[in-house]
């Protein structure tokens, strides 16, 4: 009996250690997120720069007062700042593993929950204008309150109806706002 308990304890210890190691790998590689955001911002800045390059210049001063001047200047600034940020991250944290970061992100429960929420809000917004506003609100509130486990079914339904009424009727009525 004692032997079985010891074996179980050591198994639990091993699990804890593995979880700790995973957490360490995740924490260590978490700054890879800076690289990812820098890549996205650089891509955005390059897109804006290339787009601006094709704007016509009508001014006598050419480039300086044309519509393309500010977007090109700002895109360049954003790229420079992103490069500085990447270098600083590299110097501060040393070599980082992108795969370690990716596994950490996938294993993180909070990240998974945020993806589910993004999908819920995304679908809700996608259906606005297609399904009547009160109904889409009611469905959204029912689903999200159920996912967030705010209480019993009765409470979920009650809160959903009240929230939908506030969003669909009360606020638009007070401010004389047309709804989608």
């Amino acid at each position: 009996m004692g032997f079985v308990m010891k074996a179980e304890l050591s198994k639990n210890d091993e699990k804890d250690k593995a979880a700790e190691q995973k957490q360490e790998v995740k924490d260590k590689n978490w700054p890879v997120g800076d690289y990812m955001i820098a890549v996205l911002f650089i891509a955005y800045a390059v897109f804006m720069f290339v787009g601006a390059y094709h704007f016509p210049s009508r001014a006598r001063m050419g480039m300086l007062t044309s519509a393309k001047f500010t977007p090109m200047l700002l895109s360049t600034l954003v790229v420079i700042l992103c490069v500085v940020m990447v270098i600083r991250t590299r110097v501060k944290f040393g070599r980082l593993s992108i795969s370690g970061w990716f596994h950490g992100v996938m294993a993180d429960e909070r990240m998974r929950r945020s993806y589910v929420l993004m999908v819920m809000i995304g679908v809700y917004i996608l259906l606005i204008g297609i399904i009547p506003f009160f109904i889409i609100n009611l469905v959204f509130f029912l689903v999200i309150y159920f996912y967030l486990k705010i209480g019993t079914w009765k409470r979920i339904v009650l809160y959903s109806v009240i929230s939908s009424a506030v969003v669909s009727y009360l606020v638009p009525y007070v401010f004389n706002l047309p709804v989608p």
Binding site: Y124, F141, Y145, S163
Partner: peptide, 16 residues
Amino acid sequence: DVILPIAVGLGVIGAW
């Protein structure tokens, strides 16, 4: 968890 989903709905009205 009760008030923030309502903020999403109100945000939709504001943006609209």
